[in-house]
Design a binder for these strands. Structure first.
Length: 894
RNA sequence: GCCCGGAUAGCCCAAUUGGUAGAGGCAGGGGACUUAAAAUCCCCUCAGUGCGGGUUCGACUCCCGCUCCGGGUACCA
């Protein structure tokens, strides 16, 4: 056990006497300081080099890095370092998504001010990031809680307000009680708050919105062009935007004269105008503005009011649960079907959503499953108007709705049309009579951006009793968040209780006025931070136009998929807004998106069902399988499945511990090696040890031959032996493999595997039976070239160790300033090839050829190979196919 | 239910996109070194690709029909 947690002991053991110990802690600190001193990762803003912008989703400053962060940033760092070596001017920044509720909750719980809490967390996490050796240009760092950051958000908000993109309205809102704030629709997952996981309720409130729905079509259509995004994300956004085409139809009331304001009738949206002739009733959402009004004065009035009241107090999730029974009530009045004049009863129904479409539905029970069930329950007539091929539907005997296509019947002039044709024909009929039109409907709602919390950017408006709502004048920006607030978790928004903040003068009349006390949704800040990195100190606006033109869009964005329809949708929207306001040229912020997989770990539970941390458990491996015991008392432990690391299940490991034990290079390497970036990664301490061992072997290889490294000779001018030629070929091939794996395939795990292979090759080459052998001049030159290449290829993954060993070569240039190696195509090309001979698809022989052997030559050799001849028989072969460089496939004659 | 993914050795993961199933790591076994153990070094075992069909000279790869796992989404009219 002792050795398991004593890496230094282990290092000494791994190292033979001829190598100095690999002291990763001191070594890594030294190189981090050197990079810092030389500003190795500063962006050359005006260089002639092509730019490359790599960005990882910036973290919320919780105070501690978790493995998900480490993985995310390690991936980004490889790309950043690689692109830099490939000659790009790389922008690779880092900052802090610093507003948000944890800070405020911590303040309520512990009395620490959110600002102090946040700043000290930032300091701690910055330190952790720096100890990972990530290649950020730290001069560009900022936190979104900096007034100099959010002032531009306030500025833009005022521009949006002027253009009517930002507006305020009242209505039912998502309310999270534990968080004491409203939430945007995107931030409600499965009826629960995305942050705290508690059930979201509905509440009638006023708040600010951004008209994202104006951009719905554009946001949707442009997804098709985002070929660099994972389909999982674009498809989620498509679903979320939820565009459906159909018709908007007006149903007049039977006695509309009696109801003021309903002269045009009730509007419904449908995707199935072809079924209009089959409409036998109408359903309104309980919250529909006409539900109560229609019932008023009818015998149904009292019952309808009671129903609406009950629905209002029924939990939304419960009411909308699909298992919930259809329920409704006749409202006491009739409407007229605009195409056939049929008198249809109007119902209110629990399953009709107030905020989708118009909150009113034309019900076609024969062709919609929900309407079918409702009609069954309340004895409403079903009318078949779509007849599927080869089947005669009969309303009386149907057991479920027919929702597919078919031929029209009972539909007046449209009988005989296909449902597709009828969709257009019915719309045309409606349009001719002014009773409806083709329409598109979206599921997407406007983005609610007000939050009733303190730790956010103030919304820069003022309310005056006489002048109404007034924007804060530009010269009074930023509206600073006051520091001196009472945070006790009581009595609603802290700013609303801070008189010094809200009491102000009307900018228009100078009279007494009140500031808005809600703050912005923190997704507002993360919707443009990538832009600010282009010119983080710019004082003239959000971004310096020249810097934006140079660096945008982000070439490679990396982060978790959990933001598929929150951050990533808002950022696309916001970028469009800024383009339309003239601040930007681009519409899409992120050219390529990589969503890394989760970091997972086995779970452990004690006999009494408690979750245990991996550190509390010992595991022994026997033939019968693995068994686990609790370290403290040796009691049995149940090994559970591998799951995403989470605090609640205690299956987390702390990056800090592992960095101390093995070093940042090892941890980075493991995160990149154990799985391809987009897939889930199973944390394995054994695997970490394997990566550590690999780095130790690299270390040892260089030190074993340190005397050679100081005097590199170009091997291309030397006469090389067989083994040296072969090794050199492998070295150059490895350059090609690693380059392609990083650049084209984003397959970092196989890039590392190739580097490991190269190490194995170099080790075998310079030793005999594990002991260093004598190398001639050619051998030495090839070996040294191999070590050089190895370090260059390794440097994006394990930069500290690579730099340390690189310094054994002459010159004092950092690897960070050295170009990526180029392979010599002549050397990388194989000299011989092994061709497999298959007879009827079965491998029968292998033959070696020079790479320039001709097809005829190869086919001929294959056909006379003794192992092949046996399977051919006497007749001439029916087919002989040559796949260049790979195989000869033969089908014998009969 | 629908829409995405995924399933290859005891485990993680490769396979140049239809051409020799195995690169890399872990675990396991053997050997060298050692008084011994550990460490280190060298060597080795193990699957025929979730299941059933099909196309093909040839299928992990393409087609059809399933199973299981993961993710998203759902009275959206």
């Amino acid at each position: 056990m002792a050795c398991r947690s004593s890496p230094f002991l282990r290092v000494e053991r791994i190292m033979s006497e001829q190598s100095p110990p690999y002291e990763h802690a001191a070594l890594e600190r030294r190189w981090q300081q050197r990079w810092h001193k030389e500003r190795s990762f500063a962006v050359a803003e005006h260089s002639d080099l092509p730019k490359y912008y790599v960005l990882e989703m910036f973290p919320y400053p919780s105070g501690r890095l978790h493995m998900g962060h480490v993985r995310n940033y390690s991936i980004g760092d490889v790309i950043a370092r690689f692109k830099k070596a490939r000659g790009f001017d790389v922008l690779h920044p880092m900052g802090w998504d610093a507003f948000g509720m944890p800070a405020e909750n911590a303040a309520i719980a512990n009395g620490v001010h959110p600002s102090r809490w946040t700043r000290s967390n930032i300091a701690a996490m910055r330190d952790q990031l720096q100890r990972l050796g990530l290649s950020y240009d730290w001069d560009r760092e900022f936190a979104t809680c900096d007034a100099e950051y959010y002032r531009w958000e306030q500025t833009i908000f005022l521009e949006l307000l002027e253009r009517g993109i930002a507006y305020k309205k009242g209505g039912l809102l998502n309310w999270c009680e534990p968080c004491q704030t409203t939430l945007a629709n995107e931030q409600v997952e499965d009826g629960c708050c995305w942050r705290c996981g508690n059930l979201v309720t509905q509440r009638e409130m006023e708040q600010w919105y951004l008209r994202i729905t104006d951009y719905a079509d554009d946001l949707l259509a442009a997804l098709d062009e985002l070929s660099g995004w994972p389909a999982a994300v674009t498809s989620q956004q498509r679903t979320w935007i939820g565009r459906s085409t159909g018709a908007s139809i007006f149903f007049e009331l039977e006695d509309s004269a009696q109801l003021e304001g309903l002269e045009g009738g009730i509007e419904v949206f449908t995707t199935r105008p072809d079924t209009l002739y089959g409409c036998t009733f109408m359903s309104l959402a309980p919250e529909h503005p006409w539900t109560r009004k229609l019932a008023a004065g009818t015998p149904q009035e009292e019952a309808v009011n009671a129903f609406v009241d009950r629905m209002g107090t029924t939990d939304r999730a419960q009411r909308m649960d699909e298992g919930a029974a259809k329920e409704g009530l006749f409202v006491g009045r009739y409407a007229l079907n605009p195409v056939n004049g049929r008198r249809i009863p109007i119902y209110t129904a629990n399953f009709v959503l107030a905020d989708y479409g118009t909150g009113a539905v034309m019900a076609v029970p024969a062709h919609d499953q929900r309407d079918f069930e409702f009609a069954d329950k309340y004895g409403i007539e079903k009318l078949v108007v779509i007849q599927p091929d080869g089947e005669a539907l009969d309303a009386a005997s149907m057991t479920e709705a027919w929702t597919g296509a078919g031929q029209l019947r009972n539909s007046g002039p449209h009988d005989g049309l296909s449902s597709e044709q009828a969709k257009q024909a019915v719309v045309a009929e409606l349009e001719a009579h002014g009773r409806g039109k083709a329409a598109v409907n979206f599921r997407l709602r406007d983005w609610g951006i007000s939050r009733q919390r303190y730790w956010g950017a103030p919304i820069p408006v003022i309310y005056c009793q006489t002048c109404g709502m007034q924007p804060v004048p530009a010269d009074q920006l930023p509206v600073q968040l006051p520091e001196d607030v009472v945070l006790d978790g009581e009595g609603g928004s802290p700013l609303a209780r801070h008189e010094g903040f809200w009491r102000t003068e009307c900018p228009s009349c100078g009279g007494q006025a009140r500031r808005e006390t809600d703050t912005f949704d923190t997704f507002m800040e993360s919707s443009w931070y990538f832009l600010r990195y282009c010119s983080p100190q710019y004082l003239g606006g959000m971004v310096d136009a020249e810097a934006a033109a140079r660096f945008l869009p982000v070439d490679q964005y990396i982060g978790g998929i959990e933001h598929a329809v929150m951050h990533l949708l808002y950022a696309r929207f916001y970028t469009r807004l800024l383009r339309d306001l003239g601040h930007l040229e681009v519409a899409e912020p992120f050219r390529q998106l990589l969503c890394q997989g989760m970091v997972c770990h086995e779970t452990y539970r004690s006999e009494d069902g408690q979750w245990l941390y991996p550190g509390e458990v010992d595991i022994s491996v026997a033939e019968s399988g693995r068994t686990a015991f609790r370290k403290s008392d040796g009691s049995g432990v149940r090994i559970g499945r591998v799951e995403k690391m989470s605090k609640s299940k205690h299956n987390t490991v702390d990056p800090e511990t592992f960095i101390e034990r093995y070093g940042a290079d090892t941890i980075r390497l493991f995160c990149l090696f154990a799985a391809p970036p987009h897939k889930d990664l199973d944390w394995s301490e054994k695997g970490v040890e394997g990566c550590y061992r690999f780095l130790c072997r690299v270390w040892k290889l260089a030190h074993q031959r340190s005397e050679l490294l100081g005097a590199a000779v170009d091997p291309s001018s030397l006469e090389l032996g067989e083994a040296a030629t072969e090794l050199r070929h492998r070295v150059h091939q490895t350059i090609d493999r690693v380059t392609r794996d990083i650049d084209e395939r984003m397959q970092l795990n196989t890039a590392i595997a190739a580097i490991m292979e190269l190490l194995n090759g170099l080790s075998a080459f310079h030793t005999t039976n594990g002991v260093p052998r004598d190398l001639n001049e050619g051998d030495a030159a090839v070996f040294v070239e191999g070590v050089q290449v190895l370090l260059m290829l390794l440097s994006p993954f394990a930069p500290h160790l690579s730099d340390e060993l690189w310094s054994m070569f002459p010159g004092d240039k950092l690897l960070e300033d050295s170009p990526w190696p180029n392979s010599d195509p002549a050397v990388a090309a194989a000299r011989t090839m092994t061709v497999v001979v298959q007879v009827k698809g079965k491998k029968r022989a292998e033959i070696s050829f020079a790479v320039d052997a001709s097809e005829e030559e190869i086919k001929a050799a294959a056909l006379v190979h003794p192992k092949v001849v046996r399977f051919l028989g006497d007749a001439p072969p029916r087919m002989v196919k040559y796949v260049p460089g790979r195989l000869v496939a033969i089908v014998p004659g009969t």
